[in-house]
Structure formats: C-alpha cells, structure tokens
Amino acid sequence: MSKRSNKSFWIAFGIVLAALIIAPLVLPEFWRRFLTEILIWGLLAMSSDLLIGYTGMVSFGHSAFFGLGMYGAAAALLTVKPANLWLAILYGLCGSAVVAGFVAFFATRLRDIYFAITTLIFSQIFYVVIFTWTEVTGGENGLNFTRPQLGIPGIYTVTFTPEILHWFVLAVVTASYLILRRITHSPFGMVLQSIRENESRTRAIGYPVERYKIVAVMLSGLFAGLAGVLYAVQNRFAAPDFVYFVVSGEAVIYNVMGGIGTLVGPILGAGFFLGLREISSRIFGDQFPYLIPVGVIFIAMVIFLPQGLLGFAKRWLNR
C-alpha cells in the first residue's frame, strides 16, 4: 500500500463520512430511516465479510449472532430499570459472544461447504429454541420494549430523535469499520488471509490455524451482535424472524453484491439490495415478492460479476 493511495483512501473516507453526517438533515423522514437501516445491515454484512472475504469461510449462520444481539439488548432493556443503552449493548455483545464461542468451537473444525452447512444448522437450533421457549423469549410474537435514552447516566442524557439515532448508528458503524480495517491490516488479519489462500501451508509454517479461525468467528459474531443491538434499539422489538436463516442468507447476498474482502463493499451491497427492494415494490406494488427480481439479479451477479460492485468499479477505474 503506497502513501499516495493511502492518502486518497482517507480523503474518500472523509467525504463519504461527511455526506452521511449531513444526510439526515436534508433527507425526508422515509429516506433517513432507510439510510440508517442500510448502515445497520451493512454492519452485519461487514462482520460476515471478515469470514467470507478474509478467512475464506462462508457463514450461513450470522442470523444467530444478530438475533442473540437483539435478544440480549431486549433482556437488558426489559429487566433493568431505568433502561440503559450501554447495558443493552453489553448484554447484546455477551449474548452474541456466547453463541459465537459455541458455534466457533464446533464449526471451525470443518471446512468449505461443511462449515456453511454447520453454521446454518446452528442458527436453526437457536431459532427453534427461541421460537418454542415462549415464557422467556415471547415465542412467535417476540419482545417489545421502549427505546432507551442516549447519554452518560447522571451527567448528560438526550432522547433519541431520528437524527440523533442516525448519528449514533453512524458512529458505531464507523468505529466498527475502523476496528475491522485495523484487524484485517494487522499481522492477525494477514494470517487469516493466508488461511484463505492456503490453509495447509499456513499450518505448516506453524500457525495454530484452528485457534485463528475460532477468534475470527468470535470477532465476526461480536460485530454481528452489535448490529443486532442497533437494530433492536432502532425498531424497539426483538423477534424470532431475525434469527431465521433468511437473515444470514441476506448477509451473504450483501457481501456478494458489494464485493467480498473489501469491508466497504458489503455496506454498498446492503444499500444496493435494499434499494432494489424499494424500486421493486415501487414498480410492482407491495404485494409482489421483491425477492424474485432481486434473486435474478443476484444470480446474474454471481455468474457475471463475481467481484461484486466494488470490485467491478475498482477494475473499471484502474483500466
């Protein structure tokens, strides 16, 4: 990475960040909410990019981490009075960390397709448990709660308005992005990439591959849980639908559409996906299942644009 490209990266980063900060002030209510949602789903996709793009493991179980983040936040907001945002984040992260540790311990022993299927099945186990354990999780109806206030208790508090919520989500996503970028550029991230390129050689050099994989899954799970907490705070509910495998599948779609192994790509992919969904419901009406056109575009992108939108744009710019 040369100095010059590094500088242009930070300039682009600053411009995009500034645009996202100003956006809620100029956008109408609907699009402001839309943008906030893109950021949250983008965080989920970015977390799974750490596995798909950098370690070469496709997880179809990120809904479990996301969902446990939601339910963890719900537990904090419902049991502790007065509701505290930071406690919700802590509980959510603990919930997703426990699940991620469990999944990582078993699933990382397997590779490729087996890893994908095992993570999928683990997420279905958590779905079944949450769906049937009605006394604690509210079963099919999920849990409803009020949105906590933002602030440091006793010093300064402010009620969430849509703008402040957007800025809060933006701050969390930006911080997560910078941390993930730091992780992927660190020696640890280099080992993950070398596992992706050639696992047996990495092992032969002397790295404990299994331990690296477990840590990667857990890190990825933590950030997915953080996305779950944000989603719970934004929508004021936790529901079993978000533990269901469809959410994991969508996270994979965001990655592929945006471009794997880029961290920014998945956010772009989430925006592209949600934008397509919006366009489809505007053209065909709300009743029409948007996943038909979106699915066809997705298949076409897998065949013709395996690098995703960002990879395609990069190649096009370099030409």
């Binding site: 496709v58 397709i113 994908a116 599948g249 994979v252 779609i253 592929v256 996943l291 038909i292 979106v294 699915g295 066809v296 997705f298 298949i299 897998v302 065949i303």
Partner: peptide, 11 residues
C-alpha cells in the same frame, strides 16, 4: 455454486 443455487431457491 452454493450462492447461485441459494439465489435459485429465493426466486
């Protein structure tokens, strides 16, 4: 191929 068949299943 996993991704493509996943797309087919959605459609």
């Amino acid at each position: 191929t996993i991704l493509a068949t996943f797309g087919i299943s959605l459609v």
